[in-house]
């Protein structure tokens, strides 16, 4: 019985912040989504699911959903793959590793106002650095309208987003790798396990939960991507790079339709809650809690 309260005590500081800062926004988002919210005055009235219907009926909503889905899958996949490779590489001991590690993290330190505009400069068709470089090294035939052709624009923006986002994933995975007890590898080496076997049977199982968490968080982060797309293409050409983060922003501060913006937020929340419940349902048995299970009273 006592241990239960201890659990609450540990999460108390975080929970105070959560209650202070998140309960109100959650409540507001929910109420906006079911009323015709007005910025000034209390005249908003309950409209049921009308905002949800209206937002889903928007001409570009399906396109945005499709783009978001592709965007999330592709960014998370490439960011993860790249981060994993670099993390594994940086987990090998070699001279100058500390320096390389810092260099790999540098993209993370560049504020998005700089990185966004620099990438725009790089990808600009006529005065862009990429095309200039290609011409200078004699690869003129590869010159592209990087941001002006729908498919190409999507990949260009993606490339910039991966560059900006991979250091975070990398460092999280690296921290997981560092946590694997070395004796496990030593034992495997003695048993004559190949590198791929070691990766499969030691590395992956050990950082599996970190991988799951990092991917979950990165998925959530990816659909809210805003800055870099906003600067590079503003969602164009022809909506090719418009994803949910940008869509909600425009609903809010171009259309001033805060009710529909809130409706989308509620849908996202519902989606995540369903996923979490599913995950809880599937992994219920795994959750171990020493202070309870082992009946140790503290």
């Amino acid at each position: 019985m006592k241990t239960r309260y201890q659990g609450y005590l540990f999460i108390l500081p975080a929970t105070i912040l959560l209650v202070l800062l998140m309960v109100y926004p959650m409540w507001k988002t929910f109420t906006y989504s079911v009323t015709d919210f007005k910025l000034i005055g209390n005249s908003s009235t309950f409209v049921g699911l009308q905002n949800f219907k209206a937002v889903m009926a928007r001409y570009d909503f399906l396109n945005v959903l499709k783009n978001t889905l592709i965007w999330v899958v592709v960014t998370v996949f490439f960011q993860f793959a790249l981060a994993m490779i670099v993390a594994l590489f940086l987990n090998v001991k070699f001279r100058g590793r500390a320096v390389v590690q810092i260099i790999a993290l540098i993209p993370w330190t560049i504020p998005s106002v700089v990185s966004g505009n620099t990438w725009k400069w790089i990808f600009q068709t006529d005065f862009g650095l990429m095309n200039a470089l290609l011409r200078q090294i004699g690869l003129g035939e590869f010159v592209q309208p990087w941001l002006s052709q729908p498919k190409m624009a999507f990949f260009s923006v993606l490339f910039a987003a991966i560059w900006q986002g991979y250091p975070f994933l990398m460092i999280m995975l690296l921290s997981g790798l560092k946590g694997i007890p070395e004796d496990q590898y030593e034992a495997a080496m003695i048993d004559g396990a190949s590198p791929s076997q070691r990766f499969r049977y030691i590395t992956v199982p050990n950082i599996k939960n970190i991988i799951v968490i990092v991917i979950t968080l990165q998925i959530i982060y990816a659909w809210n991507t805003f800055d870099i797309i906003f600067v590079l293409t503003g969602g164009g050409p022809g909506g090719a790079t418009e994803i949910l983060g940008l869509f909600i922003y425009k609903l809010g501060f171009s259309a001033f339709n805060f009710s529909e913006a809130a409706a989308v937020s509620v849908l996202l929340l519902a989606f995540v809650i369903v996923i979490l419940m599913l995950r809880n349902f599937l992994t219920k048995k795994e959750t171990g809690t020493i202070y309870e299970k082992k009946k140790i009273t503290l």
Binding site: Q124, T125, D126, L147, S148, Q149, A153, T233, G236, P237
Partner: peptide, 12 residues
């Protein structure tokens, strides 16, 4: 008008 026009603005 240049080829990149679809993503250009005055600053370009």
């Amino acid at each position: 008008s240049p080829a990149g026009a679809v993503n250009y603005d005055n600053k370009d």
